[in-house]
Amino acid sequence: MENTKLLISILFGSILVNNYVLSQFLGICPFLGVSKKLNQATGMGIAVIFVMLVATAVTWPIQKFILDQTGLEYMQTIIFILVIAALVQFTEIVLKKFIPALHKSLGVYLPLITTNCAVLGVTINNITDGYDFLQSIISSLGCGLGFLLAMVLFSGVRSRIDETRIPQYLRGLPVTLIAASFVSLAFFGFGGIVENLLK
């Protein structure tokens, strides 16, 4: 029971309270770059969830059973980024071969995910926070869902911005960032929700 509670708190904590995009600033580039249209934002979000889950499922055992055992912890950054890059390529090939429909909708986003700092961030954070395997997977799922939520919400905000008249120099990125700041402010309201959820 205690364990389930912990898992739930990790899940909701990483979706709402410690949202990777809006409060930890990981994955800001795709958040700003691909959130222009709802379908693109959703596609990118789903691709990120998928890669995060697979990356965690692979990097966690590598860290515990290879790097920690052989005293090579300092190779973490290099190994993890290589694993993620290889996984992304691999996922793309597999999808292309076996599920072409899914590849068609997600394919364009996959290569971009290699350098998405949220993916490397979540794998490293899972190790730093000392999560076990199940907790790591749940935390990755939560981070991915949080990313998707932020992307979808923000694409709605942006479609509204497009329809308004904005002073010349504020157009484009400045107004987008200021809008993101308000969305992030809204997420502040979730602070403390997880603790109360489990009381």
Partner: peptide
């Protein structure tokens, strides 16, 4: 609020605005 997440995005947005205005785009 400036030290927290929303403040960071806000300051960044305003600074990009300032640089764009300074370089006149």
């Amino acid at each position: 609020i400036l030290t927290q997440a929303p403040g960071g995005l806000l300051v960044y947005g305003l600074l990009i605005f300032a640089v764009t205005a300074l370089t006149h785009g």
